[in-house]
């Protein structure tokens, strides 16, 4: 059993995963499936962002869908209304989300737990209301048409589903790569120390504000980039993109996959998107099932699928290691003493 489980954590597993993703369009039964997968990838990128602030850093951000919409609208407005080229507009969309994230973060991250969640819930709603009402900028309820597809410089046509799929996959790989590097770095450990408690983190000399704002800006940048990709894929967006329900969807994906794990966001997002797709009748009422599922998971399996699996494996490995070699060290004495400080 442990052997079998090791297959998933083997370094080669991620290359297998990548190969599967690369091959998917060739085995997919229809273009629609490829399209759905590309959508799942884009949402997964956003969920990776949510994982940074909520999973690693422990701050429940309820405005994440709002920042996704900000990225989408930034790209839409720049390319459709102002005739920008895709790539500069894409970059700008990322920067706008980052800048807005910094502004919101500086104010909101001084707040403790509940206040931060409430505050961001309201921020998400303000974004929604503004997009809905600020017609001069966002065209209100009419939405924005004619959003540019990613520019392939005449080499590839990203308005086609398959090329776009690979583009989305590319960004997803980049997102996971950076998330992985972050999580194993000192910076990621710093975020996780904050999750374990503000007071403890501070007493370890960690500058709370600085690190929280950084985590938040990273997360909103992810959201903005994902939103921009989303807009360029569907080419038409409306205020519903900012509906706070998207935030709740992303929390569901992350919870099911596993907070604070590297592959949780991917597993959760792709898994849930496909389950809802294959159960078409669920589309509108999926929350009848996912709502209670969230509650049950939070109570019985708060670390999600990936987190639970990793926790289980970690302990099995530890047990096995102990069985293999009983350490002959006397635990209490600590005889080798190195001078301190």
């Amino acid at each position: 059993m442990r052997r079998f489980a090791s297959l998933f954590t083997h370094p080669a597993a991620r290359w297998v995963l990548l190969a599967l993703a690369l091959g998917f369009p060739f085995v997919a039964s229809s273009e629609y499936q490829v399209y759905v997968m590309a959508t799942a990838f884009i949402w997964a990128i956003a969920v990776y962002g949510l994982n940074i602030i909520t999973g690693y850093c422990g701050q429940l951000n309820l405005a994440h869908g709002g920042f996704f919409a900000v990225g989408a609208y930034a790209l839409a407005i720049l390319t459709s209304d102002h005739g920008w080229n895709f790539w500069p507009a894409f970059l700008a969309a990322g920067l706008v989300s980052a800048a807005l994230g910094a502004a919101v973060g500086v104010v909101s991250l001084r707040l403790k737990e509940h206040y931060f969640a409430i505050f961001t819930l309201c921020v998400g709603f303000i974004i929604y209301l503004l997009i809905d009402k600020w017609e001069a900028l966002t065209h209100g309820a009419i939405g924005i048409r004619g959003i540019a597809a990613p520019d392939g410089f005449g080499l590839v046509d990203f308005s086609q589903t398959r090329p776009f799929y690979y583009l989305a996959l590319g960004f997803l790989v980049l997102a996971i790569w950076f998330a992985g590097r972050l999580a194993s770095s000192l910076l990621g450990r710093t975020f996780m120390a904050i999750r374990n408690g503000d007071a403890l983190a501070q007493s370890l000399g960690i500058d709370l504000m600085r690190n929280k704002v950084l985590a938040f800006v990273l997360s909103t940048t992810y959201a903005g980039v994902a939103g921009a990709l989303y807009a360029s894929m569907i080419r038409f967006i409306g205020p519903e993109e900012a509906n706070p329900n998207h935030t709740f969807d992303m929390i569901t994906y992350l919870l099911i996959g596993g907070f604070g794990t590297l592959f949780g966001p991917l597993a959760g997002t792709v898994g849930v998107v496909w389950i809802t797709q294959s159960l078409q009748f669920l589309e509108d009422y999926r929350m009848v099932i996912f709502g209670p599922l969230i509650v049950v998971l939070v109570i019985f399996m708060p670390r999600g699928v990936v987190g639970t699996f990793l926790g289980w494996k970690l302990r099995k490995d530890a047990e096995a290691a102990r069985a293999d070699a009983r350490p002959g060290v006397d635990g209490m004495s600590g005889t080798e003493v190195k001078p301190h400080a």
């Binding site: 422990g58 429940l60 737990e113 969640a117 919870l255 709502g291 599922l293 509650v295 939070v298 708060p302």
Partner: peptide, 19 residues
């Protein structure tokens, strides 16, 4: 449970009731 959990659970209830 950690403070983040009850908030997420509350969101679960909210989504369920609405659906």
């Amino acid at each position: 449970a950690p403070p983040i959990h009850d908030k997420i659970a509350a969101i679960g209830i909210l989504l369920f009731l609405e659906a």
